[in-house]
């Protein structure tokens, strides 16, 4: 069994409009891949579809997580199978503390007759919070309620650190972060890199890739991956922008 997240010929519709068209991508564990592309090209749709958001309808294709068909799984099953999504705009949940939320998520990953050991749990939680420079007082705060943009993103990485997914998809994690927050978040992600984990970074800007250096860069355009190369592709995009991609891959109809 190959340890990789395999996206095969994936097509996705949102409200009757086809956004992803026969998209193919393979993310092996141990690697960090970046997906770049202009706005409106389907990057976030890919993320949401993988995380089974109800607004996104998968019309064809397959997604295999270490050979297992993810598309047959419910939202929560996918997460427990090891797929993690760091959201661009995570929800605020009044009244549910970070600690209780993560306890429930951790408990859900244990065997049915196994009880979460609270002391161990808090020890781990505090370690990860320290790593991400999150004040320990946040454990009792309601998730994301009144958090700044940077705090929300750090909270996403905290959850990723606690849940130790096999594959993490990070949707525009760099958006809305100032340079300090970007550095802290990137350091956190770098610490989570390792042979047991594949990371897919979705970003509009090259900036975050200076901190989290990817193994591969994919360019997305019009619902497809149109170019895949090494990290140098990000620099080229930084220099040249996206227009040459648009020109190169514009559909005949759009050209005319």
């Amino acid at each position: 069994m190959k340890q990789q997240l395999e996206i095969k010929n994936l097509s996705v519709k949102v409200e009757e409009t086809e956004i992803l068209k026969d998209l193919n991508l393979t993310l092996p564990r141990g690697e960090v891949h970046a997906i770049m592309g202009p706005n409106g090209t389907g990057k976030s749709t890919l993320a949401k579809a993988l995380a089974a958001h109800p607004d996104y309808e998968i019309t064809s294709g397959e997604v295999l997580l270490d050979g297992e068909n993810v598309l047959e799984m419910e939202v929560d099953e996918r997460a427990r199978a090891g797929l993690f999504m760091a959201f661009q705009y995570p929800s605020e949940i009044p009244g549910v503390s970070i600690a209780n939320f993560l306890r429930a998520a951790t408990q859900a990953r244990l065997a049915e007759d196994e009880e979460l050991e609270a002391t161990q749990f808090y020890k781990r939680l505090y370690e990860k919070m320290d790593m991400l420079q999150i004040d320990r007082k946040f454990t009792s705060r309601a998730i994301n309620e009144g958090f700044s943009g940077g705090e929300k993103k750090r909270n996403e990485i905290l959850q990723m650190a606690m849940l130790e997914p096999k594959y993490a998809i990070m949707d525009e994690t760099d958006s809305g972060l100032d340079i300090d927050a970007l550095r802290i978040v990137s350091e956190g992600v770098n610490k989570l890199r390792g042979p047991e984990r594949g990371i897919l970074l979705i970003t509009h800007y090259q900036r975050i890739l200076e901190y989290i250096v990817p193994d591969h860069v994919h360019v997305m355009w019009n619902g497809r991956i149109v170019k895949s190369r090494g990290k140098e592709l990000a620099l080229e995009l930084e220099k040249r922008g996206y227009d040459w991609i648009k020109e190169e891959f514009a559909e005949p109809a759009a050209k005319a």
Partner: peptide, 13 residues
Amino acid sequence: DEQLYYMLARGIP
């Protein structure tokens, strides 16, 4: 719905 989805997306049944 969005709050519920966020929790499901973390593997909480």
